[in-house]
Design a protein around this nucleic acid. Structure first.
Lengths: 230, 230, 230, 230
DNA sequence: TATGAATGAGCCTTCATTCAT
DNA sequence: CATGAATGAAGGCTCATTCAT
């Protein structure tokens, strides 16, 4: 995973002496991208000031422009960085998987939650969707680099299920979205609505995912297969 | 309903001779809200200039501030006005419905598409989710006025199905989202990604809804119930 | 003359009540152009802040951008405005002139000094030459709209002298510059060096012009013509 | 002369094997001044970035500030270094000259063109005039070190002509400018307008100088002297 | 009420200058 | 000496908001 796993919200450079003008050319872009990710997700693109991003990364405004030629390019870099090359790994896992397709589906969904959904990277999708109108280019890029591969991976998983006789025949072009929709929904919920909603309206992600998988599998499983409980 | 029924994109010619140049004063706020809705949905809150909104409504920038004290208040008014009181009508329809629960579910989803999903009103949801971070109060309001009632309506529909023996027992707190998620997804897709995606990646809404309903019903129907074809 | 004759250095809006937010749409561009002319000439393009220009014109920074989309366009407008349509007038004067060519030449030079050289408009030439590297487009425009017409007018004057037998045959392509060069020199001197030079090094423009004309005419006059004293 | 005689545009290879990578420390300031001269002339003071100057001199930005405390001081140094002590040489040539004054004038002008006008050093004059408003002190310095001596040299040449009876009596204070003006004009033209003008508007320097000299001499020569052809 | 000229705070971006290495 | 990463003040430009008409 490109983002350091544990540095979610804290300021990155808090080790030892707080020396001004520290020279960390290698580390800077990463720190800036991380700060930008957090702030963009939190406040949106327009409402985030580059100065805030710089401050959160522990550098001055000018330094940011040393690494990214503009706020827009910073945004693009955030998107690119956060999603880069995650699918190779997943495709391989899928190829290696030898068990029941229902289990594979459930594993996939949980795995997505752990690696994307619950990490700050999940904010990226929300971000892209929110700002797509302003950055069609970024949206198209995201579609190509994330949605399309994800779509294909899920399609292959379902097709495997059908081919193995685990699942009954499915209308692939739409069935794929039966798995994607709950994830997108969860993510939008988490980033958009959850912070504004009362405790009673919160959603437990694990429960949510399990329930969606249960219901979908119940609809997809081949007739004489025994259902897969959680 | 706050939006005049026939005024999807053009200014309505409500009375016989609409007198091109007669400015109907009472209509002003409505025209401004409509213009604002369209532009906010299209470009987001920050990227929409009040001058554009005014121009699209056919008035001057100053006039806008005569009706709305600030851009933020305009935004809030757009959301408030656009989403009010749609559920009374739907609740009544639900109460009157006497057929099979599967049919009811399908009818609900299609009805949603026709009355919300395919109209500009659908943009509101996209808008609220995109700007929730900036307008928590509006998001909470939306949660209260739209999500909560919608949630309840769907819950009652599902409960009715279970009570009538149409559906097998369902984990209500999550099952509701099985219907909501595809709608939210469709709507975000339509407003965010679709405009940036190639023709091959487009989604046919009717096909999409039917497929989701099929699969979900297949998972929800009571064991010995005959399935509901499209 | 496009520039109001008497308002060279003073702030323009100093009549009666200093009411803020005065609405003077017609007057604004002129006031701004005048302020810009003065400041650009005085400090150069880069060293002049738009805010200063606005302040000198008695308006706020924002107002300037209401009339000129950018500092660069303001600069271009200054150049265009200051030189617009001066040559039609001069061409007509030339056509009407019926006297001796030597007198015509002398009249021309003095006339140039009175109408351009001694007015703030003269700063424009200095400005264009100084900033030509940065604004090739402006320089080309100036060449077309000012230098070329001026060149042609002088050429016709000289040709008239030769044709009438007032002057001996002249190498036109270069002789024209014999008149242009002293003007340009005087102007560069006035705007660049004069302010920095001791009193002993100052040049009296009238004396300078007369002396140049005397010497040049002495070289140009046809052999048997009696010389034209000052 | 401050500029190494052969280093007009390229880095000089003074010693036999110049050792591409051996950084001759003593040469640094010279290389920087040369780079700065070129860029300042080309783009003006404000539009030239110190980083560019450093890059062109093959050093880092920091190094530049090791030799010059500020951009302004760099500018002043460029002017100071480039123009110093050229007149001793010329004064000597003048003292040695024994021929006709008309020839001396023509020689002078051509000599100026070859040693200054056509070399990058000519850019200095353009530079000083363009930036005089920003650097009055530099302009005064230039006046003292270049204009004044040049002025005096020309005055002596003309006086010699008058004294020898080669020229008719001349109003010295202005006649001097009859020779200076064409040079300044040529130089401004070359550096400011020429790069922006169409081929038809270009000026051939040699032709220009000869024509100016011809005309001026025709006006200055004593009545019974035979004219000096090119 | 409606207008649109005017305002000015705010933001992105540049670049001369500094300084730890 | 040399480097180049880092700084931060400054300036162009935008746009929500005000207000005289």
């Amino acid at each position: 995973m490109p983002l350091p796993p544990a540095s979610d919200t804290t300021t990155p450079a808090e080790s030892g002496a707080p020396q001004r003008r520290s020279r960390r050319k290698e580390a800077r872009p990463g720190e800036l991208l991380e700060a930008a990710l957090t702030l963009f997700v939190e406040k949106g693109f327009a409402a985030t000031r580059v100065e805030e991003v710089a401050a959160r990364a522990g550098v001055s405004k000018g330094t940011l422009f040393l690494y990214f030629p503009s706020k827009e390019e910073l945004f693009k870099a955030v998107v690119r960085e956060t999603i880069a090359g995650r699918f190779t790994e997943w495709n391989e896992e899928f190829e290696r998987f030898s068990g029941d397709s229902a289990e594979l589906v459930r594993y996939c969904m949980h795995s997505w939650w752990e690696r994307i959904g619950m990490t700050p990277a999940s904010g990226i999708t929300k971000l892209v969707m929110s700002e797509a109108g302003q950055f069609p280019e970024i949206a198209a890029f995201y579609q190509q680099e994330v949605i399309e591969p994800g779509h294909d991976l899920i399609r292959r998983i379902l097709q495997r299920g059908v081919d193995r006789g685990d699942f009954r025949p499915l209308p692939m072009e739409y069935a794929v979205y039966s798995l994607i929709a709950p994830m997108i929904f969860l993510l939008m919920w988490k980033h958009a609505m959850a912070p504004c909603c009362p405790a009673t309206a919160q959603i437990d992600p694990i429960g949510f995912i399990d329930a969606q998988v249960d219901l979908l599998l119940a609809g997809m499983l081949a007739p004489n297969t025994s259902p897969t409980p959680v």
